[in-house]
């Protein structure tokens, strides 16, 4: 954890303490479990987004993908009788393939990530709505998938299994991003793609892999969201989720230029965002102000962060000037 992460953690604790003082219901197990469930759901897709942002890219189609893949998943197991493990795998593969397609368009055909994924945002939303004829996809009365429901919406010792899933994914992706060769390549590409290429890194493949990881994690969270809501109206399901993910990353210290950020950071960002949502509910702030509160906090967070960097750069400059003679 670096200093920024610790700062963010302190902020989370302070906000939590304030909310808990004003409204003690914040600390009720049921509220904590609900919030951590949401942290789990949003955390998984935010980690996916983080991989893409590290490379200097962006993935805007996350929300639409969550609608499309969620609709498909429920339709497969509820209406077509496909065994859920098979459907589960199929959806993950589909998410990966869509990520691959995005990565291919971006790296091989040199399209801008923003453009490619913006088109994805529109296309997948449209297909999802068409697929259900703008209806709602859901389970028939009495349909049950005990194991699947336990894994996605169940709890272990009171802890939502979605949150446990997030912890596992966090652990794995932390190693991948911060300790593996592939992770190092991603940071190198994000910092300076040309220099990475001149060091013999297959930059195109690495960037594609980042989009595939994002696609798979998005697909996974799509299943979790589907099982959480149990019915999906594809016109609104998942709206703006890509922006939650991007916001979590930015709060967590990611640079949209690429090459900066950490798994811990993006998770802390996700936690803060969900805490704010919870705050709006618990403090009786009109829920219509929800987005405004989030936007305000992110703006302040980024501003403080930037000023902190400026301050540190100044201090470092002064220190350098005092200690070593330079030209």
């Amino acid at each position: 954890m670096n200093k920024k992460d610790i700062g963010l953690l302190i902020l989370i604790v302070v906000v939590g303490a304030v909310v808990a003082t004003i409204n003690p219901r914040f600390l009720l197990p049921i509220n904590l479990a609900n919030t951590s469930n949401l942290i789990g759901l949003f955390g998984i897709l935010s980690i996916g987004q983080a991989f893409v942002i590290i490379t200097g890219g962006i993935e805007l189609s996350v929300g639409s993908l969550i609608a499309l893949l969620g609709v498909l998943f429920i339709d497969l197991i509820a209406n077509h009788g496909m065994p859920w493990p098979l459907a589960f795998m199929l959806i993950l593969v589909l998410g990966g393939l869509i990520g691959l397609a995005h990565g291919w368009l971006i790296t091989r055909l040199n399209l801008q990530p923003f453009v490619v994924t913006l088109c994805g945002l529109l296309i997948y939303r449209g297909i999802a709505r068409f697929y259900t004829a703008d209806g709602t996809a859901g389970f028939a009365f009495g349909q049950n998938f005990p194991t699947l429901e336990f894994l996605t919406a169940g709890r272990t010792y009171g802890i939502p299994n979605s949150f446990i899933a997030l912890l596992i994914i966090m652990g794995v992706t932390w190693v991948v991003l911060h300790r593996s060769v592939f992770g190092r390549y991603l940071y190198a590409i994000g910092k300076n793609e040309e220099a990475a290429r001149y060091s013999g890194i297959r930059t195109g493949r690495m960037v594609m892999a980042a989009y595939v990881i994002c696609g798979v994690l998005t697909a996974l969270s799509a299943i979790y969201f589907a099982m959480y809501t149990r019915s999906i109206s594809p016109a609104s399901h998942g709206n703006f989720y890509e922006l939650y993910a991007i916001a979590a990353a930015v709060l967590g210290g990611f640079s949209l230029r690429g090459g900066e950020g950490s798994i811990v950071g993006v998770i802390l960002g996700t936690i803060l965002l969900q805490e704010l949502q919870n705050l709006v509910n618990l403090l009786g702030i009109p829920s219509s102000l929800n987005f405004a509160v989030m936007g305000g906090v992110i703006l302040i967070g980024v501003l403080v962060d930037q000023q902190w960097d400026v301050f540190r750069a100044k201090r470092r400059l002064n220190k350098a000037a005092h200690s070593t003679p330079s030209n």
């Binding site: 060769v181 190092r184 390549y185 940071y187 190198a188 910092k191 300076n192 040309e194 220099a195 990475a196 290429r197 001149y198 060091s199 013999g200 890194i201 090459g259």
Partner: peptide
């Protein structure tokens, strides 16, 4: 600066980059 090195990477990380395996 454009193609030779990663300014934000440490000396060691720059040197190991092409030979990470």
């Amino acid at each position: 600066k454009l193609a030779g090195i990663l300014l934000d990477f440490a000396v060691a990380q720059n040197i190991s980059l092409p030979n990470l395996s």
